[in-house]
Design a protein around this nucleic acid. Sequence first.
RNA 1: GGGUGUGUAGCUCAGCUGGUUAGAGCGCUACAUUGACAUUGUAGAGGUCAGAGGUUCGAGUCCUCUCAUACCCACCA
Length: 844
Amino acid sequence: MPEPEKLSVMDKAYDPKQCEDRIYDLWEKSGFFNPDNLPKDGQPFVISMPPPNATGVLHLGHAAGLAYEDLMIRYQRLKGRQALWLPGTDHASIATQTKVEKILAKEGTDRHRLGREKFLDRVREFVANSQGNIRRQIKKMGSSCDWSRERYTFDDALSVAVNQAFIQMYQDGLIYQGERIVNWCPRCQSTLADDEVEYQPQIAQLYYIQYGSLLVATTRPETKLADTGVAVNPYDKRYKAYIGQELEVSLAGHKLKVKVFADKEVDKDFGSGAIGVTPAHSAIDHNFALKHGLEIIKLIDEEGKILPSGGQYQGLTTLEARAALLKDLEKSGQLVKLEDLENNLSVCYRCQTPIEPLLSKQWFVAVDKKIPGRNQSLKELAFQAVKSGQIKILPERFAKIYFHWINNLHDWCISRQIWWGHRIPVYYTENGKVIVAASLEQAQKQAKGQKLTQDQDTLDTWFSSALWTFSTLGWPQETQDLKKFHPTSVMETGYDIIFFWVARMIIMSQYLLKENPFETVYLHGMVRDKDGKKMSKSIGNGIDPIDMIEKFGTDALRLSLIIGSAPGADSRLYEEKIAGYRNFVNKLWNISRYIFSSVKKVEIIKKTPTAKTLADQWILAEMHKLIGQMTDDLDNFRFSSAGEKIYDFTWNKLADWYLEIAKIEGDKDDILLYILQKLLILTHPFTPFVSEQIWQQFDQGILMVASWPLAQDFDATVISDFSELRELVVSLRNLKAENKILPTDFPDCYIENSVLDKSYLELAARLARVKLATAKLDLEPLAIGSSRIWINLKKDMSAKEKQDLQKYIKGLEAQLKNRSFLDNAPAEIIEQTKKKLQEAQGKL
RNA sequence: GGGUGUGUAGCUCAGCUGGUUAGAGCGCUACAUUGACAUUGUAGAGGUCAGAGGUUCGAGUCCUCUCAUACCCACCA
């Protein structure tokens, strides 16, 4: 097994490329990604990895998710919990099929020429290939997931789960077949769920057509060929006389019989106030037809072409038919008027092809129907799970969005006519009997010798991913894993799939297992480019996470994704930002390098070392303060805040102050090593590679399974005393710089301070590079904090500084004279204000 | 049409339940530098907290309105 190199003197700069793969290997071989190998007394902590589509490459959105998930998993593992992060991939039916079809198109063929089985073989080959890529990329991110439990939505076991879910729902009457208007993508040759439809704003033409004695306005004239009704508002005086009449209409010779009816839904003021109703190609019109008993005529087929019912326009595409019909209407003088109309064009979310609403027989999940024996519908189950507080959504505002969506949910169309997906477990006998069964064999038992045909359709890809948290743990078997690890702890995902996925997981888990799929939903925002634009291939502003890892290292990329982004808020990523965190990682490396090179022996310090000086007390106090704050932040999903704090401690406290003082005071081996050890544990969830690489120098096992430290009590006065020292040093340096005294010059200086004793004044003088005088100089002293300083400078406080201070003092004085302030403000605030005033006056 | 965010230094963003002279990183300016680190150090400049009202002893923080901007949902023929 390749051991990470143990260098006696570490390289001057951290080189991620030399370490990352080796470290990952070390972790993987240690077996600790698998919770079964972690201490048995730990409570399970479980994250189901949102399965990336098995179509190729990882983008920054995935990278961000992985960074958060790994952060949580590593933190909980360090805290002693049995952390399970279950990885996997999604077969992503439409997305994958579309991808492979594009490849076939380049080869000059298509799926119909290949045939179903050959085509599916091609897809399988393609998927196997890209799954390997994805796995590699997930590892590159440092993800500590349990590969021994990796799953794929198309695994045999998961397909069993899909069939089981379908059958159970069918038996409960929650899945039914019905003829309804569906969203049809003529290119994908499939239905789409309502939320798979996107809208593109466009300026459409609104055509006014003479329609017998009426005038009708429409954006889709070609559909008028299958009109069977005209809807008007019941209170529209213009049309009152027509209501109830049956009209014979000729559209440039194409004969229609239409019934005029009144409905409140019709807006008198839009267009002409009269709507031609096409029941087979509009959801609203279909409802009209059911309500008012209209005939339904299909006009457009699955390829978007006109059927024989369209008469002479038969065989044309809808757009061709539109053009031809408009021309004919113009000739016959029936095209009365044209207007521009802003509206939205519905398109397929995968291929952006305009959607054709069609009447079609499909399978649906009934969301409003009561579940037998439970007195609740699926919709109500999903609503309750969040409303009751059992599932917490972060940030909270997304709960509102969730409720709104659930409340407006319609029956879910789950059948797809594409080939790549789980076949619907429904069989038909020759005489049309429907048999729902998990396999052909089982179906045959019920068929009593009749020949069977399986439904040609496949299931919506979200149907299988809705089962993900438990199908991956063995359901419908009652496995140990399912008992132990479900419900999972956190679902971490992007807010863009809250409806597609999060809501459906809740529905399915509640229905099938009577429990929630997870306790907390943590939603991250979208990663955008420097200008806040969506990253996309077509614009070419996308950043490839793997490129960034090559350039800056994984740890730097992870930090740049974690720090500075709030849950649910979009964030921007660009190279300078990542470079900044690369610098931080290098800083951490060099801090360690310094400590290792300066101590007599590199060893683990188990006991809290004794502080000998104020600086020692201070750094230990700061560290325990940090541990407390970070633990609180991480327990409450404030990842960015925790990251900022460790960054600040490492660079601004440890490196800039403590190490500099350690160089002067000396004899601090145990404290330096102790602080470093804790620091490595605290940084590990953020920057796993560099922290582990450094830890390996101790030769004491694997950092990944070390113990997260407990915050100890600390004396806060130590921190304020030390800040006295810090302020003194900074002020002296400032005085020197402002007075153009070279850093190499040491001006004479006498200091009086009530808090700091002489040894600390000497320390301050060394840090500030001044020469400590033994007696007061013959000068006016300056007041800095609680110090009085006699220093040999040509200049004192600048005019601007003086002005600012005077203004500040005036403000405080006014406040202290204000009766209502004195009467209303709490005593401690008044005390504070008085103190501030004294200090400020002292300075002047 | 309905809803939800966001607007704080040149840029990217913190600022929790209202109470130090509003912070950080990058960038900028000046200076420094062979011993952990130039992927560095020290110091500095830079903000009427989008605007207008209001509540309060006190508002970046709470309320109302306006403007700008992003996204989500619904879709009208």
